[in-house]
Design a protein around this nucleic acid. Sequence first.
DNA 1: AACTAAAGTTAACGCCGTTAACTTTAGTTT
DNA 2: AAACTAAAGTTAACGGCGTTAACTTTAGTT
Lengths: 216, 216
Amino acid sequence: MARVPRSTYHHGNLRQALLDAGRQELRGHGAAGLSLRRVARVTGVSQAAPYRHFDDRNALLAALAAEGFLELHHRFIADDRSEDPPRCRLERLGRTYVRFALDEPALFQLMFSAELDELQARDDTLRSAGEQLYGALQDAVRGLVPDPEQFRVGCASAWSIVHGMALLLLHGRLPADRSCREQLVDAVTAQFALGLERIAADACHGSVAGDGGRRR
Amino acid sequence: MARVPRSTYHHGNLRQALLDAGRQELRGHGAAGLSLRRVARVTGVSQAAPYRHFDDRNALLAALAAEGFLELHHRFIADDRSEDPPRCRLERLGRTYVRFALDEPALFQLMFSAELDELQARDDTLRSAGEQLYGALQDAVRGLVPDPEQFRVGCASAWSIVHGMALLLLHGRLPADRSCREQLVDAVTAQFALGLERIAADACHGSVAGDGGRRR
DNA sequence: AACTAAAGTTAACGCCGTTAACTTTAGTTT
DNA sequence: AAACTAAAGTTAACGGCGTTAACTTTAGTT
């Protein structure tokens, strides 16, 4: 447990230092195991110091989650290739999403944890960061599924499948060791995007899908 | 806080009573907020009594999760209609999965929480309950996608999409109020099952999907 | 140079998980 | 029936936690 001593009484940039230490705590102990006292200790500051910068433990978690949303959004932008066809762009976005979840499992789970649901309602920074992310997903789906009604369903499907896959993978629930993980992710996203593309194409030819009724 | 007094020194069926109280705690405070001491208090027993029946707090959570897996599996069986065509059966299973998650959000999240990942490796009851569930899903997918390689991808996709949708819905992340929730679930599962059916049908006609066409 | 508000400290409260040492009881053995 | 034993429950304690109140130090302004 690294205790960082410091020369000046005032830290200078404690808020960010706490966030950095919190990020490490997250990696080491998960969101549930994150202890505010330990974060303070590692940062070399008293147990009560964090309360000058965060209302409570949840506020620190919310700030960490907001960082996570922004970071994931940046990855979306960095990985995107606007010259690719819509299907490839959607696939790429899905892979980026899953890769992020596997890179930062605790942060990712925090971003979608029950504790944050209520905070998201109040914390504007957090909410807008989350909405920004959903916007990026919507853009990617819109290119593939222009029809408004199908678009809604398409967005929900797309987010659901990558979100579910990310969580199941990082919990070791899907039978996929590290070597074939990427293959599986590629196959699932590709298959999904292909299916979406076809359904969208069908819709253009007059038939209405999405009613779940029997159609051969 | 209901404190239940009792006449006899020995409780008689404390283990199950603790599980029942734990289930209530889960509903009221979530898995993270479940306090062993409070469970004991509500059950009308001393704070140390639970340790005669569970190694520690995690063991109680694991037992609750195992109950959850069994319950969900029973719902699968109860809702299934073996006379329905494969696609309908898969859709129905998906709806059952999501409905369970929305009925018992805290229990569902517990079943797939990080804390349980390690326990699942050791606790045989818990692991087999989880595997039983995956077996039911596999059966439903197999009817639709016989080809072995596509079957693997199909299982992962199917589980991912319902799992992701369940979590996103119960976190209020998908823009769907209570009224249109069921419609959305129906539409997503139907669209997915339809896509899966078609891809499987394509495979029978010689073309091999699953790699999603060109890959960078 | 004095003042003030921000930033950090110490000490305390109550809750928690967990353990050790003890007591009560139900069931078995003699 | 009496004695024994092991299971099941109790009390009391330890240390860690989140949080707050009251205090101190410091940087920046007047």
